[in-house]
Write a protein that binds this DNA or RNA. Structure first.
Lengths: 196, 196
DNA sequence: CCGATATTTCAGAAAGTTCTGAAACGTAGG
DNA sequence: CCTACGTTTCAGAACTTTCTGAAATATCGG
């Protein structure tokens, strides 16, 4: 491996993290390397820097393309493929979220819906379905929230995340400020401010 | 495998999903089975239902315990260990988030902090550090948000997630409703709801 | 302390994945 | 339509993970 020490540390760490996760080590390393590189790299550059085989790099890049995580570029007068990650790290986060949803959440939701359609044939199955329904509803809530967040511009999203649970306070304030006909609006959903 | 069809579908699916993820197939299956079971199960029950070896179940249960994902129970006059998942699915989500943070996010943050302390020895390293700083700041924002969410009671959390980006609208409304001395408060960034 | 029952550990077998070098393939420019 | 250069594919080697049966360990009631 032929990298500045600081970069090497980073690359090795993401190789390990990749394994812990569904991604293989080389793929993690390639991505980490592209992420910190100032310039687009071609396959041969990656081979030299990581010290893995050409074919391994080829497969890794293919996988990263399948995940939409790298951009392919060309330089004038050079027909090699050059790769980069998006400049905007939020774009990377968005892509990751989107792809994971597609691969993990969506199929699970499909399965849950199918199974919930069926008639339980026993008291056991009845209980199992009940539990699956809870899971289904949870996933539905989370995906709806995600769909909502995804639409926001990054600046807004950051703003909202920074607020965190302070939003609660604002909701309470809103309820207090809004004097509504019949009064006591929001008594159910936004109960009185309590301790913290 | 000796399960009602509906349960079997579910268990097999989570076995697969587990593999896609860092968790091995058997562990995923055990958890899915415990999740949908009305009664606590002991190791032998699991062996019968999943058709895997006793030792495999033992290891799987150990791993689930290390993740804090199962509760151990005893029945009077029976010294076998019985296992369940929490009744409240949100508790499961919380545990998962907590453990993944501990195993994946925290070590990454530690590494990033260390690497960012070092003096860049070249222009390459300087750029790499810049990128790592972006990643560090992103993780910091997300973990702060998570720390905030974690403190909320489930009811509140659900409420907040259900609102989604509608919160934005409420923030705007708040800004409009609050006529403050000196006016134009909140024009820049939607400041925190101070004063209580 | 013993026997019965339950759980854990562990070495090796089985299964799965990652990685490589070699060969096949694709294409731009002459 | 050839050559040079670059990319992809693929069969098997290397490595890693998962799983099993057998043995070791733990614990309860008598």
């Amino acid at each position: 491996m032929n990298l500045p020490p600081l970069v090497q540390t980073f690359v090795l760490h993401f190789g390990e993290m990749g394994s812990r996760w569904g991604i293989n080590r080389t793929v993690g390393q390639i991505y980490a390397l592209l992420y910190v590189s100032a310039e687009p790299l071609n396959a041969e550059d990656i081979v030299e820097r990581l010290g893995v085989s050409r074919s391994n790099v080829s497969m890794g890049l293919k996988e990263l393309q399948a995940w939409n995580l790298v951009r392919l570029q060309h330089k004038p007068g050079d027909r090699r493929d050059y790769f980069t990650t998006p400049d905007d790290i939020w774009q990377i986060v968005r892509t990751l979220a989107e792809e994971r949803k597609k691969r993990e959440v969506d199929p699970t939701m499909t399965l849950l819906r199918e199974v919930l359609m069926q008639e339980p044939a026993s008291v056991e199955e009845r209980h199992a379905q009940e539990r699956m329904r809870e899971m289904h509803d949870l996933f539905e809530l989370l995906t709806a929230w995600y769909a909502d967040m995804r639409r926001l511009e990054t600046e807004r999203l950051v703003q909202l995340l920074s607020l965190g649970s302070k939003v609660q306070k604002i909701l309470e304030m809103k309820d207090r400020l809004m004097v509504l006909p019949g009064g006591r609006k929001g008594a159910r959903r936004t109960p009185s401010p309590d301790s913290e």
